[in-house]
Design a protein around this nucleic acid. Structure first.
Lengths: 198, 198, 198, 198
DNA sequence: GATGAATGAGAGTTCATTCAT
DNA sequence: CATGAATGAACTCTCATTCAT
């Protein structure tokens, strides 16, 4: 890789980071390209060498952040080593929630911008197939599920939505107090989809 | 109520309606106050006699729309007449989902803008205490629940989030096919919170 | 007419005049809307209350200037009182050339921007039908012409094109020395189209 | 001529051709140096090794195109072999009009950009003295003319201006129908300048 | 010679807000 | 109360030009 290419990649990452700072502190609508360029220490025109416009940047940022989050969570599950699908899913969610708690701006940004459609697009662009990874988890120990994709969808939407105000505003309760009940609900949902052998 | 006041109320409602049309068709960011005033047939300056700015209007609109939706759902439950809390909650959700299906713009608008905090503010401003109403439903037949408020929060967040892409994009499936599984999940969540007697 | 309307009309005329000054001194391409607004003593945004963009203004300006020019020339012919069509046409051209000589910027502006198509559009928008007026001149004394419209087209294009460098740069000769030869050519063209009575 | 110089000349011609394509399809104002360089397959910076700026290129292009056109027309006249000056001038104009008809973009480009001054500059820069060539034609058979240069000027301006909308828009008629009348006018102009021998 | 990343001035345009009528 | 002309800051995006490689 040439010096120039390397330099460009670094500058792109710098722009993504700067934009994330600004998007999460002032909001996307109130963040101008001038702001981003200035904060990143480049000329306004340079921005357009890297992104088509603010929304191009936004999309690339979502993809990037979602991917980092998932990579971390999948790794956490693998390190934990349990073979029970339910426990692995809970561990996955727990890791994600912990990350969100650590950086609530990430939650605010992803949650406000991540739709199911965007999520899938992000997964497509990624090198690793995270969805497939999650499906492998669900099949651990030979377990099978009714309407597996819908179950996943339900869980993702529930956790994504419910975590928002809990993490950001501790409303209606704080995360530590909500987690047991949230996980109990997740287990109940999984139970409702489980195919019993016998 | 004087004629003047009446006239004012009518103009305000006209502005709210116009804004809803524009917000849901062009998006809030791309709707200008000029647009709203012009569409509503008033002068730009007049807008400021009714709202502080676009975001003041937006908030009042959310509250208004959420209230209409809830009033309708509560009435639907009362007309149905079942005494089983679970069935009543399902009926309530079913009515809301049906309304959303009928007017997906409403879903898009509320979902993108309604947070738990805003929802509670809306409820506070309303004349009827809908939350109390729901709690009465939950207590039908003397039933009691662990962490009743958290259970409600969980259900509302789940249904709100999961309905979005299902209703608007039929993704991952269409609403009719998703409903049974969604309701099964809701029942599972309630089951997980139920206090058994005896 | 209300005070406001009057004021607006005056401001529009002021903008047209300012734009003409700038267009003819710096060229259209190098004249920005900022320039026009600043020179006219209004805010940049105000420009857009009067014109869609620079090219809207330009077109309105061409129409306006062409109309003034023609009105003047037609009046000059009528005051002169000759009945010979050839002499009347020459008088018409002479008046236009004199005006151009008086304000060469006008020539530069019109010539660079007036095509046959634009000219006809301008005539359409005008209240008076100048083309019709010219045709009446040609028919004075019962005179008839072969391909009358083509003859007119030829004369207009010749005079328009040939006057440009003569008036603006006295190149290849100055206007006074060129006029006799130009008019001799015009008469020759007319002669070539004349229908002789028999 | 060294390899390097040859290479440079080829690159310059490539730039001229590319610019002509772009100028005539998008217009000069909307063609950027980036566009030209990209289309020509060179780096933006390289452009400046060949031309000072867009307008330098534009001027060189006009000169080049005008010269090609005239060379072709002069050759056509020489091949035809008539000795009558009038017929030779008509043949010259006919060839130019035919070329314009074949490539209307050429007409649009030259006509919008060629003034008498630029034309003469082009002729000066050329190796062959086309003006002298034309004067020789006029003197064929010992014919003499009053104000010969003004006559030429008049004819060139007439044909240049009148061909524009006829060729490009078939307005007010198409070229084939206009030609007889145009040539009749040209002959009338020449007649008006002819010195009859006694 | 050739490159193309970087620059930054400046173009066009929009719009919330004000205020004289 | 209502108006809408006027404002001017702020925005997005373009592009000629430079210069280190």
């Amino acid at each position: 890789m040439g010096k120039v290419t390397e330099n460009k990649q670094q500058k792109e990452r710098s722009l993504l980071n700067t934009a994330f700072q600004l998007f999460t502190s002032k909001g996307i609508a109130k963040t101008s390209i001038s702001d981003i360029a200035q904060q990143a220490g480049i000329a306004k025109g340079t921005f357009y060498l890297y992104f088509r416009d603010k929304y191009d940047l936004q999309e690339r940022l979502i993809v990037h952040k979602a991917e980092v989050l998932f990579r971390h969570a999948i790794a956490a599950v693998q390190n934990q080593g349990s073979m029970d699908p339910e426990e692995q899913i809970i561990a996955l969610l727990d890791d994600i929630l912990t990350e969100m708690q650590r950086d609530p701006r990430l939650l605010r940004f992803i949650n406000k911008n991540l739709s199911w459609a965007v999520f899938r697009r992000a997964m497509d662009k990624s090198n690793v197939d995270y969805l497939c990874e999650v499906k492998r988890i669900l099949s651990s120990g030979g377990q099978q599920w009714q309407e597996q994709e819908l179950m996943l969808y339900t869980i993702i939407e529930l956790v994504g939505a419910a975590s928002y105000s809990v993490v950001l505003d501790q409303d209606p309760v704080d995360l530590e107090r909500y987690k047991p009940w949230l996980f109990r609900s997740v287990r109940a949902i999984m139970e409702a989809h489980r195919i019993r052998e016998g």
